[in-house]
């Protein structure tokens, strides 16, 4: 059984890596490499997997999980510049993997995280 919950946050970032020259950064990342950065209304689906407690009928208690996800992820990124809180380039692919690791660290004693789906814009979704 899986239970999925959607969370939202708003954050700035800029796609730029020191491993490439300025010109290469511009070629690879296009508008996303512009110096001042830009932002998104991110959405993230956190999909948990586990057994349902027969007494409550729940895989997880909503409020307790929301609290943990807020502490482990949302408060660290909402209205922040992602380049200041995540090491390395903040592509959707990398963010999805990093956020999954943060969440796994917060749920070591709880239900397993089956996947996260990071929605950068309505047209971009990154599953990790």
């Amino acid at each position: 059984m899986r239970l999925a919950r959607l969370y939202r946050f708003e954050a700035a970032h800029r796609l730029h890596t020191p491993w490439l020259t300025e010109r290469e950064n511009e070629e690879v990342y296009g508008k996303c490499a512009r110096v001042g950065g830009h932002g998104h209304n991110y959405e993230i689906w956190v999909v948990f997997e586990g057994e349902v407690d027969p007494r409550t009928g729940l895989l997880l208690e909503r409020e307790a999980v929301d609290r943990r996800v807020r502490e482990a992820l949302i408060e660290r990124v909402d209205h922040h510049n992602l380049d200041e809180v995540v090491e390395g380039v903040t592509t959707g692919e990398r963010l999805a993997r990093v956020f999954r690791r943060w969440l796994e660290a917060a749920f070591t004693d709880g239900p397993a995280i089956e996947r996260v789906e990071l929605v950068e814009t309505p047209r971009n979704r990154f599953v990790a």
């Binding site: 059984m1 899986r2 239970l3 919950r5 959607l6």
Partner: peptide, 9 residues
């Protein structure tokens, strides 16, 4: 809701 689903696969 748009923010919660349960899935059996």
């Amino acid at each position: 809701s748009e923010e919660l689903f349960a899935e059996v696969e």
